[in-house]
């Protein structure tokens, strides 16, 4: 998939992929679905989203490309093959320029850049061109595709609830204490 082609297909959207690890059950449906939609095969090692877990402690954290504003992979790429697609607010790879040197794989602090040994190509999350399959299939709603303006809203609301003392005996704010 060429960079130019991707850009021309994109509609203008600011939405971003956000994860809430607390809701993740570790079912790995997102990994399977991502690999099927991106590569046409089921193989979690080719998934653009990976679940890192501490199963005994019940901790599951979905990790995928954060589409960084100042992306280290973009900076590191010697061929300028990684660029920003402003239409979908994502970082995309132009495979016509990419020489598969894998320097981006080393540069990404999240490990979100992968390398497919069969195709000899690097891969990363492309937000499924605006219709993220992982989000569609994550029934516990641990992954969301949302506007930046609403990114922090669930957390603000949670913090506000705590602040207001819901669930405690005294409502700090409303009791005036």
């Amino acid at each position: 998939m060429g960079f130019v082609e991707v850009k021309s297909r994109s509609s203008i959207s600011d939405r971003q992929l956000v994860v809430d690890p607390k809701k993740c059950t570790g079912c790995r449906q997102c990994e399977i679905v991502c690999s099927i939609s991106q590569c046409g095969v089921s193989n979690p090692t080719k998934s653009r989203i990976r679940i890192i877990h501490w199963r005994n402690k019940g901790i599951f954290i979905p990790i995928s490309c954060q589409q960084c504003e100042d992306a280290p992979c973009m900076t590191a790429c010697p061929r300028e093959a990684i660029q920003r697609d402003t239409g979908l607010n994502r970082v995309v790879v132009d495979y016509d320029r990419c020489i598969s040197c894998k320097i981006c794989v080393s540069a990404c602090p999240f490990g979100a850049m992968g390398f497919d040994p069969q195709d000899q190509k690097i891969f990363k999350c492309n937000l499924c061109d605006g219709d993220p399959q992982c989000v569609r299939f994550c029934y516990p709603q641990s992954i969301d595709f949302t506007d930046p303006g609403r990114l922090q809203y669930p957390r603000i609301r949670n913090a506000a609830l705590k602040y207001a003392g819901f669930g405690r005996k005294t409502h700090v704010v409303f009791s005036g204490k």
Partner: peptide, 30 residues
């Protein structure tokens, strides 16, 4: 790899099935 003959159609159909099952089952299985 586990090969899938028609990946795009499979995902669409899977989604349809899971959505239909939602009222009677917890998905995915925590």
């Amino acid at each position: 790899d586990v090969l899938v003959k028609r990946p795009v159609d499979l995902l669409a159909y899977q989604k349809e099935i899971f959505d239909r099952l939602l009222p009677i089952i917890h998905l995915p299985h925590a």
